[in-house]
Design a protein around this nucleic acid. Structure first.
Lengths: 354, 354
DNA sequence: CTGAAAGCGCTAACAG
DNA sequence: CTGTTAGCGCTTTCAG
């Protein structure tokens, strides 16, 4: 392989001009074979191509982006890549982005609303074709106003804000929304638990101000009302969406002597922690306590017993986010899409011989 | 919030020139307050700042990158984001990149060597400060030559190729290597299994041509030799690193009547599949068969019984990759770092009453 | 079909 | 301290 062909390349990479010189043509011609979209004499083209190869030339994406105004990039903003929930959406986003000839920028916010704002700003600088923000939104006026502002700013710059897993920002705000039926899933799951005879269902993981949490609890409460089962507000436990919280909270619950015969965890990770705590305390699942999660991540199959949970079409959400945002001109009416969720029953709630 | 201030902003975002005009200064002055690194009169600066706010100005990262030659970006290349192994390294990379003021581009290759090559090329176009390729390498001459070529090309452009989880490319190739003791981990684990009395250990997941796999098997075989335990080559099963493979292969193994008293899975995901198969077949773990994994992903705690596995310092690998690559001038001698691995014993191998 | 010239938005000398 | 002048690498009219 030929490094150092022609001019002694010390540190600089070659440019169209270098290629042009070597091929004995003008820079424009080189650009034209690069673009491929313009007629160039066969013989000329192959001379240029050869020069490129010899100089090991690659275009400068920035120079290109400066002329046209797109970077052929989509930005992906999540709390934390290690959460399987996000990871699977990320896969969908990445796949669809690749299919649409886009690169994918990854940014994490660690659940900090200010970081979300900062990151969206950075993506504006990068001139990303779309900025995809994943996860529940904060029910806070200031936060929402900022996001609305960004939505407009991105729109003006020809880009697009995409919200995955949370609702729209209000009438007329230029946003693509890809959501799933959060409340419906929680409602269905709670119904499943109650109708199999459970009467004291704990909800593990109320995150105040987080839309995801609020909606799930709404479904949870609504199911109780619907079935006429009285519901003790003390059974809704504040916390965050983590394995550690599930573990700690469950231990505390048991230690405090709170009576309960089912545990509906805010996420599968929370459920995994809860299962460990129950096992350690010798509480049988599902005989003594039924356990359910939310998300249907692969781990749900690996815990013991296998976890009953609410399926969310992660990858599909990610793919749709990219697809809708990039083709918003063609499908202006479908810029708010809501995917369905459904209960997947496994062993952690199967038993009901009481 | 003021959209549409001053000139009717139809679709274009504002530039330094717009800001300059509005603040009654020159473009350079605007640039100077942007950079912050150059003296500007207090009064002028605040006028500029106000103009920026009013026009909702953001710099164009591409224009900026065109002048200087760095995009303040690191690229992160993995097989598949959904693998927890990659996800945790990704977290390390992302965190360290953010700490160093860099953005992170994510690319996936789905285990296809050609995609790896294509992606590295794209990152070259993007002028990323570092291109971090994660995962085992292909022991293929053509592939290695290409990577070597890219290493040189990136180096010439002032960037850096970083290999995480695989060895270097050869003497004098400009590469940063962040590896972990793959063979040592496998050796230690095999020793653990053999010395607790297991005699027919299956190795689940030999991926021909993949460096990771080759090294682990080397450790596996070496432990047998070291302890003088004869080893049946038929117990090394070809496959890929996936949960599905672990499940299928284990079922087949049982169906074929192959005798074995331990299962060393190529990864924790493979082990998770194996555990499910064993459970379905009524094989007791660890009484009848001990099971071990590799990676120590969080799922290892959630499977039942909790999985004995080899710990790999994922996040640390990711952080080191970014740190070493960006500061290679300062630490030229530590461009090949190897992290240790260690066995974590849990319930899946604990029992040894035979 | 090909070349010359202008300019994308910003930064960096170089003069004031 | 601030304005003027180039120019980063590429695309894109506009003329040949």
């Amino acid at each position: 392989m030929d490094k150092n062909t022609g001019t002694a390349s010390n540190h600089e990479s070659s440019t169209v001009r270098d290629v042009a010189a070597r091929a004995g043509v003008s820079a424009s011609t080189v650009s034209r074979v690069l673009g491929g979209t313009y007629p160039v004499a066969k013989e000329t083209r192959s001379r240029v191509l050869r020069a490129m190869r010899e100089l090991d030339y690659v275009v400068n994406a920035h120079a290109r982006a400066l002329g046209g105004s797109t970077n052929k990039t989509v930005a992906f903003v999540v709390d934390d890549v290690t959460g399987p929930f996000y990871a699977y959406i990320a896969r969908g986003v990445e796949e669809q982005a690749a299919a649409e000839g886009r690169l994918c920028m990854l940014c994490t916010t660690h659940g900090d609303p200010r970081r979300v704002l900062a990151v969206v700003e950075t993506m504006r600088e990068q001139r990303a074709d779309a900025v995809i923000v994943v996860g529940g939104g904060w029910e806070d006026k200031g936060y929402q106003d900022q996001m609305t502002h960004f939505a407009h700013a991105l729109d003006r710059a020809g880009s697009r804000l995409v919200l995955v897993g949370r609702g729209p920002l209000g009438k007329g705000v230029p946003v693509t929304v890809v959501d799933y039926d959060n409340e419906g899933g929680a409602f269905a799951m709670t119904t499943h638990l109650l109708s199999s005879g459970r009467r004291q269902v704990v909800y593990l993981g109320k995150v105040p101000g987080l839309s995801t949490s609020t909606q799930r609890i709404r479904g949870f409460v609504r199911a109780h009302e619907m079935l006429g089962v009285p519901h003790d507000p003390a059974l809704i436990v504040d916390g965050v969406f983590s394995r550690g919280f599930g573990y700690q909270a469950t231990r505390k619950l048991i230690a405090s002597g709170t009576g309960f015969d089912a545990l509906f965890a805010g996420t599968d990770m929370v459920a995994a922690g809860a299962l460990q705590a129950l096992r350690e305390e010798g509480v049988r699942v599902p005989e003594d306590v039924a356990v359910a999660g939310y998300d249907d991540i692969p781990t749900a199959l690996d815990v013991f017993p296998a976890l009953t949970t609410v399926n969310v079409p992660h990858e599909e959400l990610g793919r749709a986010a990219v697809r809708l945002a990039l083709h918003r001109e063609e499908f202006p009416e479908s810029q708010h899409q809501v995917f369905g969720t459904h209960v997947v029953v496994r062993d952690s709630t199967r038993y009901s011989g009481r």
